[in-house]
Design a protein around this nucleic acid. Structure first.
Length: 175
DNA sequence: CTTCTGATTGTTAGC
DNA sequence: GCTAACAATCAGAAG
């Protein structure tokens, strides 16, 4: 079980699979390491944080929905602590949701993406800076101190609204 | 003690 | 263009 992780399904590099995009690939999953000594060791920090503040990927609409779903799911199933249980249930419901409902999460996810780009910009800049001096060599600098600096637009309104942002002319469903 | 895994889908980045 | 990897999560499993 542990062996097949990265490419679980044989990398799906076969011509057959190649034609078919990642269809049912159980997601090669993460690091795909654990081979022998690929386990990232925590140098000193708690987790293997390669980069000081690496911009994590923006949660997809599904993940946004997941966060909310998890709360609900846990409420109705406080005994269920299996992540797989929520994942399955969420996935099922997700597919059951209408595009309208999904659009609400998609809109949010889209916004996340924009922020992600911003974070990348800051991160990217950081990288350049880090590369300049020797990284990890100087410890007296108290590591990174700057945080979130890509706020050029002071207008960061936080709409607490619930759902439906500006769908404007969305064809909705006319069937 | 520390890191990984499971399970879901979507998005992003690399080739 | 397609593939691989990763995004959260939580508790257990493995080393």
């Amino acid at each position: 079980m542990t062996g097949a992780r990265a490419k679980g399904k044989g990398a799906a590099k076969n011509t057959k699979d190649a034609l078919k995009p990642a269809d049912d690939r159980k997601v090669g999953k993460r690091k795909a390491a654990v081979d022998k000594s690929s386990q990232p060791k925590a140098k000193k920090e708690k987790k293997a944080q390669k980069d000081p503040n690496k911009p994590k990927r923006p949660p997809s609409a599904f993940f946004v929905f997941l966060e909310e779903f998890r709360s609900t799911f846990k409420k109705e199933h406080p005994n269920v602590k299996a992540v797989s249980a929520v994942g399955k249930a969420a996935g099922e419901k997700w597919k059951s949701m209408s595009e309208d409902e999904k659009a609400a999460y998609e809109a949010k996810a889209a916004k996340r993406k924009v922020e992600y780009e911003k974070q990348m910009n800051a991160y990217n800049k950081r990288q350049e800076s880090a590369g300049d001096g020797d990284e990890g060599s100087d410890r007296s600098k108290s590591e990174v101190n700057d945080e979130e600096e890509a706020n050029e637009e002071g207008e960061q309104q936080q709409p607490e609204d619930e759902g439906e942002e500006d769908q404007e002319d969305e064809d909705e469903d006319d069937d």
